[in-house]
Every structure is written in C-alpha cells, then in structure tokens.
Design a protein around this nucleic acid. Structure first.
Length: 477
RNA sequence: GCCCCCUUCGUCUAGUGGUUAGGACGCCAGAUUUUCAUUCUGGAAACAGGAGUUCGAUUCUCCUAGGGGGUGCCA
C-alpha cells in the first residue's frame, strides 16, 4: 500500500519566515521531493487578528528565494472555517464532543487548584456529562472533544521514536470557541485529513499537540498521518532562538549577502547528517535526505559555519550567476561601508571582469561588494590609514619610478602589466611587494585587494594611470 | 508543579558492545604568496556524573544533574 507522499508547510502569518520555519519547510520540501511526492503550503490564519497580509507575503517571498517551490495554490485556513464547524457538529452529534459553559475565570481557577495539588493542570471535565438543561442562562458554550480519560496515546514519531502519553494528562481540547470560531487544534486535523497529508513534519514544540490531535483523528475515524517532529534550532547561548540572535527572517539573510544554496546546505546539515558529508548539491540532498538522519537534540545556530559554507558557494558559483544574484539583492544589502544602490551598465561589466579576483576573497555577497568598492571610487581616492602610511615619500618615489613603465605597457592586460612591474622591481632591486603595495594603495586606497595586475587591468589604462599619478603628484603639492 | 524530549571536541556532527573516538566550522602553528583571501600541511580540543548489565561500555538499563519544549476559548 504505497500511497503518494504529501507533505505540507503550515506557517501562521504573524511575522516573517524565520530560520526555524525555513528549515521545517526545507525538510518537508525535501521529503516530498525525495519520494516523488507533493509539497503543499497552508497558511494558518485562523487567528485573524494576529495574521497579516504582509506576513503572508514575507513568507511566500522567503520560500521563493530559498527555492522551495510548493505545489498548487497556497491554502488559506480561514476560508475553511465552515468545514471545520461541520466536523465539530458531527462530533457533537455522535456524542464525541460536548458543550462547555465554563468561564475563563473558572478555568483559570481550575488550573491553579490542580497545580497547587500537584496534578496535571487540565480541564477537569465539569461539563463532560451534564445535560443541556443545566446550561446557565445567556452563556455561549465552547465545544470540547470528549477525549479518552484512561489508557494512553502513542505517537510513533519518525524522529522522536515511540512517545507515550498517559491520556489522563491530556485535555478535553476545545474545538470551537464560544464565538463559534474553530481552534487551531481542530483546523489542523481537518485540513491535514482533507488535504490528504501523509507526513506531518514540524518543530518538536508540537509533539504534545500530536497526541491531542491524534485523539481527534481517532474520534473522526480518520487515519493519522505519519509524524516527524524535528528539534528546534537554538541560539548561540542554547536558549530558544529569538530575534536577538539568529531568528531573523530569511530576507535578513539575503540582506547579509547569503546565497540560497548555501543557506539550504547549512540548514539541512543543522540537525541532519549523512555520514561525514558537509557539502551537498541539491540533487544529493534530495537523494540522501531521510528522517533517520535527523538527530533528536536541538542544534545551535552558528554564523561562522554558515559564512564558511557561503564562501564556498560564492567561489563555486559562476561569475554570471553571482552577478545575477547581486542584481537581485543590491538594493537590500546591509553594509556599514555604504554600498551603491545601483550600478551603471559599465560598472556591471567592470564588476563582472573583476569577479574572479573578488569572489575568491568574499564570504558573503556584501563582503564581495564592499571589496569591489575600488571599482567605482572617485578620484582623487581617499586613503585609509594603512594605505596613507604606505604612500610616504619613499612609497611615492616608487610610484614615480614605475609610472613611466606602466605608461609604456601595451596592450593593457594583466600579463603585460605584470612583466612591466616585475621588470621595474628587478631593475631597482626591490622585492615585488615593495612595488605592489604602494600601487595597491594608490589604486584602491586600501592595503588589501585582489591581485594587483588584475586590478590594473580591470580599472583600465586611463583610470589606473590617473590614480597613480594622483599620488605621485601629491609629492610636489 | 505536571507531562514529554535531549546530553560525544567551543559549535554542527560520525559512531550503533571491543576504534589511537572520525569529519567539518572555529582556533593555533607552518608552507605557498605582490596584500588579503584561497589552497596545502600539522596541532590543541569531546563521550555530563553515578550505579548497574557484560569478559568488555561512548554505545544497553536505571538514577541524578543540566538543557529544551509543552502545559490557552495562540498557533
């Protein structure tokens, strides 16, 4: 009985797509892909007050950017409220649910009492077996599931293993609020069933819910999906990931210059492993992903490792692909250096020409753009401290000496430029570095950059000579 | 309080009764080098603690400690 795999990602649109959600989505996507199944997207917006259109858009955009494409149209849970009420009604008719007239105050007192007596703080079933006749005047009831009080509910979880809950610690959960609106607990179960979800992959903060939902599935006589509760991602301090550390929206990672492929690789490796493998192509992840490889302990988010991985992916990417990704993100990149918001066609071409030297040195797209700053720096260049120090009188003398040699270079290409500069260094009995560093300072205003001959070539004859001349002229000024 | 889950280098992890406990990031040292990176070589670095079971436990069981999650008419 091999049924087709159907997974879903079901975020509630109360904020951006945070990194934990992204990983959950990734796992669902991977499992579906790995099994030739379907990956659905359901927006859990039953809490209308806390849901927003902006959040929905942020989530959709985040998934798209990460390359996690879903099948069909997203399903908005609030549009299915009628169906949810219908199921609650059915349960009521079958005697598997009942009306509860307790006030919030009574409920709070009930929990308080249980806690004080060391009992599980759950609803005590006050209205479980009372007739409608006893209902107080003018109080709208909530509808509760009549859950089993004895025995146990067992979840055979794909990652957590066999987890047993005693039914007496589980509530008679609320299906319909007193205003008639369906609760999350009812909605997920009905939707997962109606959508034909075969595998529910989500954070392990839902593990207890799985037991409750399991009872609901049972009450309706529906087959339960297979559960896989993956551990949450924690911050560097071991506590739950919050905005303080890494729990930013995925758009923040884009703004920091991370590549979707790198983030995917990092995220899948966080809590999941395939032997000693660290770097995977998307095809490999899909082929190798399984629940067995997911660990049961929470993992901490490590920016250092993400950066390293991202650097790897930047080096692996083609110049064209990097240009395309920079074009997409340029306006959103966050940098203290103040990156340009846009580039001219000519600058894009220069950037592409400089890309081989640039991508070797960057761990993020932002770093890459920061180090490309010399390309569009305006003459006369402002020198940073180290560069200024390098261009003391001695340094400027070297520049004055090498300038005529550069002027004589033709064609203006890296190899020819290197020959000219090396020739000058030899003639003057200088180590190459003694010439290259002042040149670098004059051409880029800094002491670090891609190979100096590449810099010269990319900058072009006119601009290069002018920048060097600027510094030489400073001597006499 | 009650329920559930977790615990191998700083971090992510491999390991499934017998290993010099492996890899990756980070860190340190060295090599290459026109700077910075890249690349390469080497190094330091871990089985939370205590009882069992066993000829033998990182691997199995129990307890303790620590961490996490849940405990809503939120999702």
């Amino acid at each position: 009985m091999t049924t087709k795999v159907v997974t879903r990602f079901a975020p509630s649109p109360t904020g951006f797509l945070h990194i934990g959600g992204a990983r959950t989505a990734l796992f669902n996507w991977l499992y579906a892909k790995a099994n030739g199944g379907t990956f659905l997207l359901r927006i859990e917006d039953t809490d209308r007050a806390r849901s927003s259109k902006e959040a929905v858009e942020a989530i959709l955009e985040g998934l798209e950017w990460l390359g996690l494409d879903w099948d069909g149209e997203p399903i908005y849970q609030h549009t299915r409220a009628e169906r949810h009420r219908e199921v609650a009604g059915e349960l009521l008719d079958k005697g598997l649910a009942y009306r509860c007239y307790c006030s919030p105050e009574e409920l709070a007192a009930m929990r308080e009492r249980a806690r004080a007596e060391g009992r599980p703080p759950i609803y005590d079933g006050t209205w479980r077996d009372r007739g409608v006749g006893e209902a107080p005047e003018g109080v709208a009831p909530a509808i509760r599931l009549k859950a089993a009080r004895d025995g146990e509910t067992i979840i055979d979880d794909e990652v957590q293993g066999r987890v047993v809950f005693q039914n007496n610690v589980l509530d008679d959960l609320i299906l319909l609020r007193s205003d008639g609106s369906p609760t999350y607990m009812l909605s997920v179960v009905v939707d997962d069933h109606d959508m034909g979800i075969t595998h529910v992959v989500r954070g392990d903060d839902h593990l207890t819910n799985a037991a409750r939902q399991s009872q609901l599935f049972e009450a309706m006589g529906w087959q339960r999906p297979i559960f896989a509760h993956v551990p949450l991602i924690h911050g560097p301090d071991g506590a739950k990931l919050s905005k303080r550390h890494g729990s930013l929206g995925v758009e923040s990672y884009r703004a920091m210059g991370y590549l979707p492929a790198a983030l995917r690789n990092y995220l899948v490796r966080l809590g999941w492993s395939h032997g000693d493998d660290e770097i995977f192509t998307t095809e490999q992840i899909i082929a190798w992903f399984d629940f067995a490889g997911i660990g049961r302990s929470p993992a901490r988010f490590d920016f250092k490792k993400l950066e390293n991985l991202n650097g790897h992916y930047i080096r692996e990417n083609s110049d064209q692909s990097l240009i395309a990704q920079i074009k997409r993100g340029l306006g959103e990149f966050e940098s203290d250096a103040g990156l340009p918001q846009s580039l001219t066609d000519g600058q894009w071409l220069q950037l592409e020409a400089a890309m081989p030297g640039l991508k070797e040195r960057a761990r993020t797209l932002v770093e890459l753009m920061e180090s490309a700053g010399y390309l569009w720096a305006k003459r006369p260049l402002t020198l940073d401290g180290k560069a200024a120090k390098l261009l003391d009188e001695a340094g400027r003398n070297v520049l004055a000496g090498v300038l005529p040699r550069l002027e004589a270079v033709n064609p203006w290409v890296s190899d020819e430029l290197e020959a000219a500069v090396r020739g000058f260094a030899e003639d003057e009995a200088l180590k190459l570095g003694k010439v290259a560093q002042p040149l670098r300072a004059a051409l880029t205003g800094t002491t670090t950059s891609p190979g100096i001959f590449d810099v010269l070539e990319v900058l072009g004859r006119e601009e290069s000579l002018a920048r060097v001349a600027d510094q030489v002229a400073r001597e006499t000024a």
